[in-house]
Design a protein around this nucleic acid. Structure first.
Lengths: 205, 205
DNA sequence: GTCTATAATTCGATAGAC
DNA sequence: GTCTATCGAATTATAGAC
């Protein structure tokens, strides 16, 4: 992507400051309410500089919303431990990097942000599910995403009091079994069996 | 709530049309992008009528975002069946009423909408959890909310392809066991046992 | 490279005629 | 009750001086 041949451009610090301020604002306010003026003020520069460097608001967001989940491979790991590692890793990434918050807050109302989330899902989470199970890995990854994103939504965005109050270790202890079920569990196909869903006891533990 | 003494006001139809259009717009665009002008256009009236009836945008949303989940009591129902009924009921409410979509899309960026979601959670979902388990019902309800809202987020808002493609019955079959785990399952308390979380591998990294 | 000035829209909200 | 007209503020984006 970047030409690492040339010396660092003179305005490289400004670009980085803009990007950092943009992530903060998009994370806190979502796409619409995060204004270029506010981002520029946070970065201590003139609003026109943002336009000069990134062209328009859409491209600024695209640059600010690049993200690597840094998911571990988890090959050969026991499903129980893999699910715990996954949930813990997600919580760390959520609390340590504002980009995920920016993606979620913006993705709910901005189509480009939603598309970026689908890309991250397909390119980064689905491969992990594929390594853990050859059976419908996309569906499994989607279910894991639903639980992880729902958890982040309730804990960091909507701030439901009982979820906010939980210790991180308790969050992992509660949700890891569900994630394990999605990653490696099985479910009776309704199309084949008719009415019976989840057999006679959808065991999770 | 309403005085059912008086005859129906002459402008009662207009009020209802405004509310219906408001729900549509808030659901499709979120709080910021849903403009009073667009809502008025949908309702085939003048924008100033919206202001006359509801004062300002904030109160219009408050009126449009009143919602009853209509959750069944589920007393004396087997946990497996209760969780299936719950998930199925939520999916029906999501697909049959735009208010939930409006609440989710607005709640991510608008504090009043987020507060409304917390109210609905506390007043409508927590009591159901209390009827199914005396052990930490608020936490259990919160975990159920995280899975249900995450599912709605991925299926109806972000539209992750594998989740969108699933039949409703398959969604229920997959997620009901996780919801059952949250409603009636147990988890080793980290505070009591120290480091060990849900097994023998507690550390996250 | 950085900033001033401003164009061109769009929004929520108000005043007042009928 | 309904509408016309408009205010004041805020936004993205551009043009151009230094």
């Amino acid at each position: 992507m970047s030409e690492n041949r040339q010396p660092p451009r003179r305005s490289d610090g400004t670009r980085a400051a803009i990007l950092r301020a943009a992530r903060e604002r998009f994370a806190a306010d979502g796409y619409e309410r995060a204004t270029i003026r506010a981002i520029a003020a946070d970065a201590n520069i003139d609003p026109s500089m943002v336009m000069r460097y990134y062209g328009n608001k859409e491209r600024l967001f695209a640059a600010a919303a690049e993200f690597d989940l840094r998911l571990p491979a988890l090959t050969g790991v026991h499903p129980d431990q893999a699910s715990e590692l996954l949930v813990g890793h997600f919580l760390e990434r959520w609390e340590g990097d504002e980009t995920l918050m920016a993606l979620l807050r913006a993705g709910v109302t901005n189509p480009a942000a939603a598309e970026r989330m689908r890309e991250i899902f397909a390119a980064q989470l689905v491969p992990v599910a594929e390594r853990l199970s050859p059976d419908r890995p996309q569906v499994r990854a989607g279910l894991v995403a639903s639980q992880i994103l729902g958890l982040a939504l309730c804990r960091y965005v909507l701030r439901l009091p009982p979820i906010v109050a939980m210790e991180r270790a308790d969050v992992v202890a509660w949700t890891a079994p569900a994630v394990r079920h999605y990653l490696t569990g099985s479910v009776t196909e309704t199309a084949e069996v008719g009415l019976q869903v989840a057999g006679d006891a959808g065991q999770v533990d």
